[in-house]
Amino acid sequence: MNLSVDFLGYKMKNPVAAASGTFGFGYEFAEFYDINVLGSLSLKGTTKEARYGNPLPRIAECPSGLINAIGLQNPGVEKVISEEIPRLATVYDGKVIANVGGHSVEEYVYTASRFNDCDKVFAIELNISCPNVKGGGMAFGTDAKIAQSLVYSVKKIVKKPLMVKLSPNVTDIADMARAVADGGADAVSLINTLVGMRIDLRTRKPVIAVGKGGFSGPAVFPVAVRMVNEVCKAVSLPVMGMGGISSAEDVLEMMMAGATAVQVGAANLVNPYACKEIIEALPAAMERYGIRDLKDIVGACR
């Protein structure tokens, strides 16, 4: 039985990576278990300068999910490279994905290229779909022309393979995938969160301080499977699928939709052992569905 997959030239021992924003810089979870079981992990979204993010509350409960509006809190790219990644390296032997956010083309290009000489990073995940940052973030992810031109600019400077994280908050996600593919992306990841809102009945105001945020969790899984499937049919790039994955069966389903590898996000927040448990459950789930090699099921559902 083979669980390993190749993704952008990196051999993941299994297809399960922890999703950006739900796993800190990794070492937080090493207190709970040996995170070397992971296929990989995508680091907390990183920007050029340190960011505090949005005012509190940043979290709202939803049926089978949550809304978050963190606002890309992070210590800035210099500290990520000089402190966070070395600390992660003490507990994780594998390579990781650096998730890069920004407000301008220049900022994206600068931050992404700062990882050029970082051996621990095997790919850049360009976050053009964060719904929680004003004046940028998602604008890059919802306009095909702007997205394509951004990817083109980053690709010119960045040395690592470039994966672009797509927003589901668009009319046609296949169009976005084609645009970033034409811009030079090496892979795409999807879906980021869906824009959502909750209202407090007592105060008649939004639960989230900034009004709205990104909805994720098991509730969005069917949307994610559909979008991954559409994107895989539209472009020939490898896809990292995510959105509400909470079990080994979900991993198989996402891979049959077309994903070469997956990320697990919201599930980590309610069960810190989620990734480990999903990985441990994979062989039995594969056995149950007659799967010998995970590579055989990628895009099996066309």
């Binding site: 924003g21 739900t22 796993f23 800190g24 937080e28 979870f29 907390k44 505090y52 993010g53 509190l56 509350p57 940043r58 979290i59 709202a60 949550l66 978050n68 963190i70 809190q73 639960v207 980590n268 927040l269 309610v270 810190p272």
Partner: peptide, 27 residues
């Protein structure tokens, strides 16, 4: 007190500003 996502330091849902930088209420 804060609305929290995870409660163990992963999501940054409950960060506050302090004299020594951002700190998580949960962690």
């Amino acid at each position: 007190e804060a609305r929290m996502g995870c409660g163990f330091g992963a999501c940054m849902g409950c960060s506050i500003k302090t004299v020594s930088g951002f700190k998580r209420v949960c962690k």
